[in-house]
Design a protein around this nucleic acid. Structure first.
Lengths: 206, 206, 206, 206
DNA sequence: TGATAAACGAGACGGTACGTCCAGTCTTTCC
DNA sequence: GGAAAGACTGGACGTACCGTCTCGTTTATCA
């Protein structure tokens, strides 16, 4: 055999132009921020990106999928540092500050819009939620479990429920048009901390 | 004066057909449930309701406002009975069951979609949120305050925060496509109850 | 009855804008002459006429039908004067000069293109041929029959065949890209005249 | 000189695949007959022929040229036998039967379409007309001149005009969607024969 | 025998136009 | 004189092909 079996045979035909893909996502993201999901037209993105419409449709089925892809490509969360043994509330507050940074400004609104208008069951929709929702939850989960391992708190089987308490208010306020700031997330974290600390007894009483 | 002053002068011209208004809202609600906000077109509603497009535009400025109006007309919460002195968790669980009933099925998704895609600042948008969000919160707030008045819990100034904990997860799960059922809301209420009971001490420690 | 029964009740709603129809046909005709059938796009006509595409599609199903309509609206033949008793060849030559005037320049080419590319069986296609082909033949037929009535010629049952001899060469030359001028049609008419005169004997011999 | 001058230096590189050319023309001809010129797309022909688009564009500049080439490759006229001394009308009728055979069915329509939509001045267009138009005329011309040489008729300088009378009606009827059959061409030939025979006197009278 | 060169299939590219849907507006008739 | 109905302009949709391009592959000639 001239080549290793791990060598994936390349598909025939002209390969896709990765720079076109980037330009499309950039233009889409820009328009999403400036005009919102309702005004994001494939036509305009194509024009802006210097690309033909069919090129866009080769990658994404419609404007919503394009919007999701654009948002995914720009949304990531800073991982927590697992080495540092900071108290739970400090770690959570720092993390929520990151979350707020991601969701404040227009981006949060657009993410929520896109998520709300997407077909719940489509592949890309699941990927989108996986990226945005699970992307944030994973870090919070890590922090909580680290604290439990340190004996700081006792979670039992309510980790996911607690994570809902942590993140749900952010989306709820985005949805209802109320502002989110560090102050708000700090108070949220304090309440949760009280729940988890004070409830070691509560849990013990159970 | 040619006519008695107590006689409310009827406005000139053909009076509005109230049945048309109803037919429009009905058709809009039906289409919203069947096809979703993105597929709700004024044209289709007009056809379905047997009405001309301008008749719809006379009442609402665009499809979103129509959707809001249709949802408002069908969404209300059963008030709690303030006389009965039931324990906090029982009352909250019963209330959340009502909330789940309102938001389960397609309606909840469509409410979230509509809220997410609406212009945050418009009058009707505020009215919509007032109806849907504040409509539910008011009842929860009432229940919490009654419990505080009975000395069952101590809320301090965190009522609104607690209300966020109560309702936010519902919208969060609607948004993320996860199911909501009584089981979930029951667990939510239990955690909140633990927070508020166990934290009388937590609060005292503060 | 307040009004005569011949009064056709007008349909409700905004009536079609006749000036739009005219503008479309004008623009289409102009583009047809300037660019040819292959370059006649509905999009460009709409732009040129200051009209939306759907307005064009309300009247005509596609660019070909539009082209036919535009050509029909501009193509008519001057009728012969049945009172004047001019000799056959003089009358035919004058008529063929009219025909040449209609088909010379770009118009003839476009008519032939349109006719050649049209669906043979469509209603509008039949109307188009009726207008263009039969419109010319009718006059020629009239002239021939008048001559026969005067005893100038004897046609027998070959009128249509003779008409083919008269008009077919014009289209044949348009199709083959050869020029047509009065000289050519004059020679055609002379040959036909010889055929019809000299063949009174030929016919008698039969 | 390093090589014999009679040895045409073969171009380097892979030689063109003649079978691909054939497959393309076949597929194009088939589609032309089945769908017509307007529906003949290079894309579909490439797919049908199992060939890449660039291979088609290497040979022909666009779909029209391809159509012309496909039609030329399938269109030829049986030459007359110059030895046999058959009477004029018999020879012409036999020839016109051949012509009808070539132009009947869909092929004639497509030839006319292609001719009508082609750029009049292009090289291939001239070749196309040379093949189709002149290909038929040449045989008719031969027959006429043979008859004149036999003293059967006197043509003078109107050979081309008479040829127009012979072929033009065929194209005229193709264009106008009327049927052509042997009966029709027979009658055409009879009229022409009468014109040419009876008009020796007509010509003398002149 | 290997380098070089052209033609091959495949298919993505930037474009143009298609024919459709719907948004909102405007103009007429109806009540 | 406002409500109702429908045609209007206009913008975007998603699709079909255009003609061009870049790939990796195949088939020949030339060194």
């Amino acid at each position: 055999m001239s080549q290793g079996s791990e060598h994936r045979k390349r598909k025939p035909g002209r390969p896709r132009d990765e720079s076109a893909r980037k330009a499309i996502l950039d233009a889409a993201y820009r328009m999403l921020m400036e005009r919102g999901l309702g005004r994001l037209t494939v036509e305009a993105v194509a024009g802006e990106a210097g690309v033909g419409k069919p090129t866009i449709y080769r990658y994404w089925a419609n404007a919503q999928e394009l919007a999701m892809a654009a948002l995914i490509s720009r949304t990531s969360f800073r991982d927590s540092d697992p080495d540092e043994a900071v108290p739970l509330d400090t770690a959570l507050k720092a993390h929520m500050a990151d979350v707020v940074a991601v969701f404040s400004t227009a981006r949060g609104r657009q993410i929520v819009s896109t998520m709300a208008s997407a077909d719940t069951e489509s592949e890309l929709s699941k990927a989108f939620r996986g990226q945005i929702i699970e992307g944030s939850r994973a870090i919070g989960r890590e922090i909580l479990i680290a604290a439990e391992n340190r004996g700081e708190i006792h979670l039992g089987d309510s980790v996911e429920q607690v994570l809902d308490f942590l993140y749900a208010p952010v989306f709820y306020r985005l949805l209802t048009g109320k502002p989110i700031d560090r102050d708000y997330t700090d108070r949220t974290v304090e309440l949760i901390d009280r729940l988890l600390s004070g409830c070691s007894c509560g849990s013990a009483m159970k």
